[in-house]
Measured scan of single mutants.
Amino acid sequence: MGFKLLSKLLVYLTASIMAIASPLAFSVDSSGEYPTVSEIPVGEVRLYQIADGVWSHIATQSFDGAVYPSNGLIVRDGDELLLIDTAWGAKNTAALLAEIEKQIGLPVTRAVSTHFHDDRVGGVDVLRAAGVATYASPSTRRLAEVEGNEIPTHSLEGLSSSGDAVRFGPVELFYPGAAHSTDNLIVYVPSASVLYGGCAIYELSRTSAGNVADADLAEWPTSIERIQQHYPEAQFVIPGHGLPGGLDLLKHTTNVVKAHTNRSVVE
C-alpha cells in the first residue's frame, strides 16, 4: 500500500471513529477524501466538511520552486461564519470567499490569524475590503508590521502568557507558548472536538522541520505538551499544512522538532 493511500485511509478511519463516538456532533463529509496538494491548482481553494458547521479550507501556493498546501478553518456561528487564517495570499483568499459563498452561503463576518507569517495573514486586506472584521493577538499584529505583512485590524486580548485561553464565538483560542513562531495560536472547536494546530503542528508525513527561522526550538516541545494537557479530548487535529489526523500529530511534531534540534547540535 502506497504512503499517500495509507495517509488518506488514516484520515478516513479517524473521521469514521469520530462519527461513531459522537453521532450528534459529527456529520463528516462523505463526498470524498481530504484534498491534497496535487489536486488543488494554485489560485483555487477546496472546502472539506469535518463536522456539522465545521470545515477546513485548503489552498496551495508556490514557494521556492515548489507547491505547498495550506489549511485553515471555518466555523459556523449562528447565521454567520468565523474564518481562521487566510488562504495564503490575496488571490487565494478572494477564491476562498467565493467558494464559501458557493458552498455554504453564509457571510464571513470575523477572521482570526493564528500567527504573523504570510500563509496566515496574506489576504487580510481582501477580507477587510469584503467587510470582514480581522483579528490577531497584539504580538501577531506587531510582528506582521515588522515583517511588512498585512496586519489584522483588531487585537485579541488575554493571550499574552503561555497557557492563556479565551473564548471567541464558537471557538476557544489558546496560546501554548512559542513553537513554530513566538505568537502562534491554537484554535479548538469544543462542539466538535476539532483542534486546529496551525503551523505549530505537523502532518504525519512530514519528517523535516522546514521553516524554523522564527521558531523557538527549545520551547516548542513544552508548548505541545500544554496543548495535549489542555485538549486531551480532541479527536480531529488539523495541521497548518497537509493531512489531518488525531492527537498523534502532536507527538510526531515533537519528535521531528527534537530530531532537528539534535542534528543542529551535532553539526
Results as ranks from 00 to 15, higher is better:
M1D: 04
L9I: 14
L10M: 12
L13M: 11
T14S: 10
S16K: 07
I20W: 12
I20V: 13
L24F: 13
S31L: 10
G32Q: 10
G32E: 09
G32D: 10
E33T: 09
E33Y: 08
I40Q: 07
P41Y: 06
V42L: 09
L47A: 03
L47K: 02
Y48R: 11
I50F: 07
I50D: 02
I50T: 05
D52Y: 09
W55Q: 01
A59L: 04
Q61W: 06
V67H: 15
S70F: 04
G72R: 03
L73D: 02
L73W: 02
I74H: 01
V75L: 05
V75D: 04
R76C: 05
D77I: 01
L81M: 07
I84F: 12
T86L: 00
A90C: 01
A94F: 11
A95I: 10
L97R: 00
A98H: 14
A98K: 10
A98W: 14
E99G: 08
I100S: 03
I104G: 00
G105W: 04
P107A: 10
T109S: 13
T109E: 06
V112I: 10
S113A: 13
D118A: 09
D118W: 06
D118V: 09
D119T: 01
R120M: 01
R120D: 04
V124S: 09
R128C: 08
A129I: 07
G131S: 08
V132F: 01
S137R: 07
S139I: 13
S139L: 12
T140H: 05
R141L: 10
R142L: 14
R142K: 14
L143E: 05
A144W: 03
V146L: 14
G148D: 07
G148P: 03
N149W: 06
T153L: 11
T153C: 04
L156E: 03
E157F: 10
G158E: 07
D164K: 09
F168P: 02
V171Y: 00
F174K: 00
G177T: 00
A179M: 06
D183K: 00
N184C: 03
Y188V: 02
V189H: 06
S191M: 11
S193T: 11
L195Q: 00
Y196P: 03
G198R: 04
A200Y: 06
I201R: 03
S205W: 07
G210I: 04
N211M: 14
V212S: 15
D216A: 08
L217N: 04
A218H: 14
E219L: 08
P221F: 05
S223D: 03
I224T: 05
R226F: 04
I227V: 12
H230T: 12
H230A: 14
Y231R: 02
A234G: 04
L243P: 10
L243S: 15
G245P: 03
L250P: 06
H252R: 03
N255G: 14
N255E: 13
V257N: 03
K258F: 08
H260N: 10
N262G: 12
R263E: 15
S264D: 13
V265Y: 11
V266K: 12
V266E: 15
